[in-house]
Design a protein around this nucleic acid. Structure first.
Length: 274
DNA sequence: CGGGCGGCCTGGAGGC
DNA sequence: TGCCTCCAGGCCGCCC
């Protein structure tokens, strides 16, 4: 469900609640998520551990424990991670519960079970197969128009698919790919390898702008997304093309279109995206 | 190898 | 109201 802005919003919302707390226990109610929950490893590696910090890499939330391990959480499509001050009754589809000190809990809920929970030593993260081939963070300096330009030479795949490929750049999913391409006035089906440096300068700026603004708005809530306190985002109000097939383009007035690319709904303006 | 597609799951929406 | 089909923001593995 969530792309980079949603995971970053989650991280920021949980940071003040979790840092300094100690994990006192673990409940696993259903273990067959995208990857089986490694109950034993989790229990041994987290019990009695204080939470030191919360990081994010791509769409993974990384909860740093004092034993130099990361508690890894991926929300898949419908995952939620939320803080409960008092042990209230269990919601549907809560598969993993971390009990915390001072009668609090961290609950992982995921109806579709595309998410995952795992534990990885910090020193081994860069070698983990889920992380070793990842591209740069889109909001980092390493993610530049020059990098994209060089990286994309010779590639025929549509630029939208390129943006959504984590080998090239992480965190950009279906919603923000469409939005960034609209902002940069680039047609989603243009071959990535045929974008000139000027187009890449616009697109790079648009990716950073759209993701940055989405983070400021607390993410996009279409159906599911909530932060760690149960609050919804506001960026859905600012969407320009996503889910707006048949509506008028805010820039040129033409009717927005939808097309399936690589199996994913893609929204664009046939008037101002070339 | 690059690129496309199906499959993993469940719930909600829309059509009849 | 109920039943059916389709669709969904991610990711991986398989296929050509």
């Amino acid at each position: 469900m969530p792309e980079l802005p949603e995971v970053e919003t989650l991280r920021r919302s949980l940071l003040p609640k979790l840092v300094g707390r100690t994990i006192t226990g673990l409940e696993v109610h259903k273990r067959d998520l995208r990857m089986n929950v490694p109950t034993r490893k989790l229990r041994q590696g987290t019990s009695g551990q204080r939470i030191v910090d919360l990081h994010r890499r791509a769409k993974y939330l990384l909860i740093l424990l004092e034993n130099e391990r990361y508690l890894l959480v991926h929300l898949g499509m419908t995952g939620r991670l939320f803080f409960r001050q008092v042990a209230a009754s269990l919601e549907d589809h809560v598969h993993v519960v971390f009990r915390l000190d001072r009668r609090a809990e961290l609950r992982f809920q995921d109806p579709r079970r595309f998410g995952l929970v795992d534990l990885v030593p910090v020193a081994r993260l860069e070698r983990d197969r889920r992380f070793c081939d990842l591209g740069p963070e889109p909001l980092s300096d390493g993610c530049s128009s020059r990098y994209f330009f060089e990286r994309s030479r010779g590639l025929k795949k549509p630029i939208k698919n390129f943006l959504m490929d984590a080998h090239h750049v992480v965190g950009v999913g279906n919603i923000y790919a469409s939005e960034a391409l609209f902002d940069a006035r680039i047609h989603p089906q243009r071959a990535a390898g045929r974008l000139g440096i000027q187009s890449w300068q616009r697109l790079t700026a648009s990716v950073k702008k759209v993701l940055g603004e989405a983070i400021r708005q607390g993410g996009t809530t279409i159906n599911d997304f909530q932060d760690g306190n149960g609050n919804e985002g506001y960026f859905q109000v600012l969407l320009q093309v996503y889910g707006k097939e048949g509506e008028a383009c805010s820039r040129c007035g033409r009717t927005l279109r939808m097309k399936v690319l690589a199996g994913r709904s893609t929204f664009y303006c046939p008037g101002c995206q070339r």
